[in-house]
Nucleic acid binder design. Structure first.
Lengths: 250, 250
DNA sequence: CGACCGTTCCCGCTCAATGGGAGTCGTGGC
DNA sequence: GCCACGACTCCCATTGAGCGGGAACGGTCG
């Protein structure tokens, strides 16, 4: 790969640089980026300046570096997930209005649940989910739905891998997880009390394409002891409407 | 610059490759990308494969190349615009529910209005705006608001540049545009009938930070002859609520 | 069956990227 | 006022990774 003795390509370096940015660290000095990405100072400065010139990164008033709007634009405007998001949004809004709790849309990405959208009323409860954030498939309600309908391959990989407990109530026993997944496939929904956050219960349903394959999960985060039935009915309705809006007819 | 005799850096090439993707062309063959980006076939294949390995691009079922979710994730999760969008979203929803027409949020980016979000009821009218899409500042209602409160520098650049007519009613006379901008500054809003689309009227208001600087525009697209007053009142209220949600107190 | 196209593989050349180090600027502590 | 530190820029000799022309493979279409 690149001319670097360190043996990483320019692409690798670019990704490593972008990965130094997180939701809580959106602006940093070039030197910081270099340290975190494991790049020599002069290289870090040179590459970051190049990226700023290209518009992929930006400088704020204090010359700190941020991810550029240009990158967001390029990534968003041709993302196929945008179509899914736009189709689902009106129906997510309806769920949000009626249930008045966090409503979210997630897809399967690299063995995790990636959240494409989150709607929250000002008075909604706690929620650790973020737009463009991730949660493990075996813990989050969205993830469980995505996992239940994922390839056998992925299921086995997750079941045999270490199942990290996010809370004491997260399912970490492979046999129990297997039973839960079977139940999700039968019932077409999941109720996940306290798996991600002890004070909340996630409920989720699948969104399918015309072949019946599950392409996304719609979910709501309720207070731990809330009634789940109404939210599930609304989620199912919105999932169907989203499928229709995408042009899928089954 | 990269090792290429063509004298463009790897970064340049990356941007050129990403720019071959558009909202209407979200999947293409590697050879297509190469042609459109002006790269030799073997180089295009090598670079695209590298980007796919890094997760910035993806292959679909037919081996065509798409922009990867990983790129969207990296660009979105640390984007400072995300904070603005999340703060504005609940209030945009309220506007959308009450006015029942396209509601959008735009910022100034590289002398154009860049749309961060668009909410549309299924029964809303025509709208050429897209999320992550752009419109010229002198034509769109959002753009006019952003331009009116932008730096004198940008204003003069736009006023002296060629003002392209999007429709026959777009303001293309510098003197008229100057008067319109002054009026926007006085009234704190704009009504743009037929400037972007002859059958629609855009109305927009500014969103400010604590220093009073305009950071975004909230707008609604109405049918050409609709009453604008109600929409403007709702927009103003939502702009104020958004400013408060962002923690700006004035 | 032949033409075409997308793609992969190969390989020798070369020059752009590399990174250590020196120097500049700005800041904050004392 | 002085010193230390950190962020950043500039310089430059070295070198190996990127480059791209070309050959070859495989699928598709007429």
């Amino acid at each position: 790969m690149a001319n670097s003795p360190s043996g990483d390509s320019v692409t690798d370096r670019l990704v490593r640089i972008l990965e130094t940015f997180t939701p809580t660290r959106t602006a940093q000095t070039t030197a910081d980026i270099g340290r975190r990405a494991g790049l020599p100072s002069s290289s870090a400065h040179r590459i970051v300046n190049e990226l700023v010139d290209a518009g992929l990164l930006e400088r704020d008033e204090e010359r700190r570096v941020r991810v550029g709007m240009r990158l967001w634009e390029l990534a968003t405007r041709s993302s196929h997930a945008l179509r899914l998001r736009q189709a689902a949004l009106p129906y997510m809004e309806r769920v949000q209005q009626r249930v008045r709790e966090h409503t979210q849309l997630a897809i399967l990405e690299h063995d995790e649940a990636l959240f494409l959208e989150r709607l929250s009323a000002p008075d909604s409860g706690a929620n650790i989910t973020r737009v463009a954030g991730r949660l493990p498939v075996h813990a989050s309600s969205s993830g469980l739905v995505l996992l239940a309908f994922a390839s056998r391959d992925l299921q086995e990989r997750v079941l045999s891998g270490p199942l990290r407990a996010v809370t004491p109530e997260t399912i970490v026993d492979p046999a129990a997880l297997r039973r839960t997944l079977a139940e999700i496939r039968t019932l077409g929904r999941v109720v996940a009390p306290g798996y991600v956050d002890e004070v909340s219960t996630g409920v989720a349903v699948p969104v399918r394409d015309e072949t019946g394959a599950v392409i996304a999960a719609l979910s709501v985060v309720l207070p731990r002891d809330a009634e789940t039935q109404f939210a599930l009915v609304e989620l199912h309705r919105s999932a169907r409407d989203t499928e229709r809006a995408l042009g899928y007819r089954r």
